[in-house]
Amino acid sequence: MEVRTIKVFTTVDNINLHTQVVDMSMTYGQQFGPTYLDGADVTKIKPHNSHEGKTFYVLPNDDTLRVEAFEYYHTTDPSFLGRYMSALNHTKKWKYPQVNGLTSIKWADNNCYLATALLTLQQIELKFNPPALQDAYYRARAGEAANFCALILAYCNKTVGELGDVRETMSYLFQHANLDSCKRVLNVVCKTCGQQQTTLKGVEAVMYMGTLSYEQFKKGVQIPCTCGKQATKYLVQQESPFVMMSAPPAQYELKHGTFTCASEYTGNYQCGHYKHITSKETLYCIDGALLTKSSEYKGPITDVFYKENSYTTTIK
């Protein structure tokens, strides 16, 4: 009895394709271990004539594949690729409408935090270190965002349907971005203890939790000093293409032309909904596939993004 075979390709990165001759009487799992086709788990399936010449994702289970996976995804987590594939199996079914010149995501599976993050990423200057993220990001900007969303979920250790947080998501993504040249110098002034300067680099240099107003941050924000008295913390120097200011959701007025974009969060910790506000020729609110415009805006804002380049204080 002759062994019926077909020729397929296996890959971990969709760049390096490895030619395989597979036995049609055995499952993919018996031949390769966990195997995925377009995100779908085909591990328990036997090869079919229609699979001839198709590319299958496999887990990096030998040295060659491990090197290829690390170079593309910059992670050695053995569960990463499987999590990416199972997320992709959902995100490829989502709709990605162009809204006001940006790629958004039609609401499904509690994905409003991903839509808000995706919209924000198209408006701030950011370059990702893992080629996987950078490639998928370019495709997302062009309207094909399924891979990018699935990668975000995998890097953030999230599953489809789980509630997510924009600030946490951005923080994970910033860790995989090139923020080497970003720098922030802060000064804390206390009447009792004097003053202390701190220099922050990388992710810490672009994120701040405690106030939404970048102007206020430049002037000074009140913080408790270690001595128990009130101290003032203010920005001395900022070198970065953008800054992200966050605070627990509270009524906040966004003035046209003073910011790049913002995240609105309605609801409580267990259950809520994100919308995205962007400042173009007027203010726009993007909620999944829905767009509304207004000249002014007041609502429960939790993150505001500002364009920056270089700032030095005039406070002496």
Rank of each mutant, 00 (worst) to 15 (best):
M24A: 13
Y138D: 14
Y57W: 14
Q238R: 01
E2C: 10
G202P: 01
S104N: 00
V3R: 12
K44Y: 15
M85T: 04
Q237T: 12
G228R: 05
M244P: 00
T91K: 04
Y72T: 08
C227H: 00
Q237M: 13
L173W: 02
C182P: 01
L186Y: 15
G299H: 01
N110M: 06
A146V: 05
A142R: 11
P131D: 00
A146T: 04
V236I: 09
F70W: 08
Q30N: 15
A108K: 09
Q98Y: 14
I6P: 06
V188G: 13
D23R: 12
T75R: 03
N110T: 02
N147A: 10
G257W: 04
Y284T: 09
R184K: 01
L81M: 12
G210T: 00
T292L: 07
D13T: 08
S50T: 14
Q122C: 04
Q98T: 14
T76G: 11
C156D: 04
A132N: 01
T75M: 10
F148L: 13
E168P: 09
G267V: 15
C225M: 03
D62Y: 06
F305Y: 08
Y96P: 09
V188C: 07
T35D: 07
S171T: 15
R66Y: 07
M85S: 06
L291M: 14
A40D: 14
Y172P: 04
L102G: 00
M207W: 04
D287P: 00
V8A: 12
I105Y: 03
Y138M: 14
T198D: 08
A40R: 11
A115V: 12
W94E: 06
H74M: 07
T11F: 06
S263N: 15
M245I: 07
T232A: 04
H51F: 10
T35I: 10
F56R: 03
V12A: 05
L153C: 08
V58C: 12
G257R: 05
A177W: 02
A150Y: 00
T55L: 07
F70N: 13
M170A: 00
H256V: 10
N157F: 06
V8P: 07
E68S: 08
N110C: 08
M245S: 02
G288Y: 14
G194H: 04
I277R: 02
F242K: 01
Y274L: 10
N49E: 13
Q175G: 10
G29Y: 12
E125V: 02
I152P: 00
G164L: 03
S86C: 07
Q123W: 00
E125L: 04
G143I: 01
E308P: 11
P248G: 14
G257F: 00
S25A: 14
Q30H: 13
G288Q: 00
L133R: 01
N100A: 13
T258P: 00
E144M: 04
A247Q: 02
D165K: 06
E264A: 10
K233E: 10
Y155P: 06
Q175I: 07
C112V: 03
C193W: 00
L17H: 09
E52G: 11
V67H: 13
F217W: 07
G53V: 06
A140L: 12
A117L: 00
L126Q: 01
V185L: 02
T260V: 15
T192G: 09
T282V: 10
C261H: 05
N14L: 10
P34C: 14
D303T: 05
C112I: 07
T159M: 12
H256L: 14
G39F: 10
T120E: 06
V99N: 00
P47A: 11
E281M: 01
C285E: 05
T314V: 13
E52Q: 12
S50F: 11
L200P: 00
K255Q: 06
E215L: 05
H256N: 15
S295E: 15
H273C: 00
T159A: 13
T11C: 01
V58I: 11
Q98S: 12
P300V: 11
R141I: 09
T314L: 15
Y306C: 02
T199R: 09
M209H: 15
K233C: 14
Y234N: 00
E308A: 08
H51C: 05
V185I: 12
K280G: 14
R184V: 01
P130R: 05
V99C: 05
V99I: 15
G194Y: 04
I15W: 06
R141W: 06
Q123F: 02
H90A: 11
S50R: 10
A146N: 00
Q195E: 13
Y96D: 08
A40N: 14
N309H: 10
C225P: 00
T120F: 07
E281C: 08
G101H: 05
F9N: 13
L65N: 00
A142Y: 10
L290W: 10
D109A: 04
L88K: 05
N100Q: 14
K293Y: 12
V304F: 00
C149K: 01
K293R: 09
D180M: 07
T260Q: 07
T35P: 14
D303H: 07
A145E: 02
A154P: 04
E215Q: 06
K158V: 03
K275Q: 06
T55N: 08
Y113C: 07
A250S: 11
S25W: 13
Y306H: 02
G272T: 00
Y265V: 00
D63V: 07
H90I: 10
S50N: 11
C261S: 10
M244G: 01
Q98L: 10
Y36D: 09
L290Y: 15
F32I: 11
E308C: 09
Q98K: 12
Q30L: 12
H90W: 11
Y172W: 07
S181R: 12
S25M: 14
L173F: 00
A262H: 01
K95C: 11
G39H: 08
K316F: 15
C156V: 13
G267I: 13
K92Q: 05
G288E: 00
T5M: 11
A146H: 05
H18G: 09
T35F: 01
A177F: 07
T75D: 08
N111E: 03
G164W: 10
L179M: 05
Y36S: 05
P241Y: 05
L151A: 04
L121E: 00
Q30D: 12
L235A: 04
L200C: 12
G257M: 05
C225V: 03
N178G: 06
T55S: 12
E168A: 15
S263M: 05
N16D: 13
K275C: 06
G220C: 02
T55D: 05
F9E: 10
A115G: 00
Q251N: 06
L37K: 09
K298W: 12
G288P: 04
A231Y: 00
M209K: 15
F80N: 09
A117D: 01
L133E: 06
K7G: 10
V12P: 05
K201L: 09
P78Q: 10
V304L: 07
A289P: 05
T260H: 08
I124Q: 07
Y306P: 02
V206S: 01
R66S: 12
D77E: 09
N100L: 15
F70R: 06
N129G: 06
A140G: 06
T313L: 14
Y73P: 04
T27S: 11
T27W: 15
T198S: 09
P248M: 09
L88P: 06
P34G: 09
Q270D: 15
F9M: 13
N89E: 15
Q123V: 07
T120C: 12
L65R: 12
L37M: 11
G53R: 09
S310Q: 15
L126C: 06
Q123C: 06
V21A: 13
F80T: 04
S240H: 12
T312D: 04
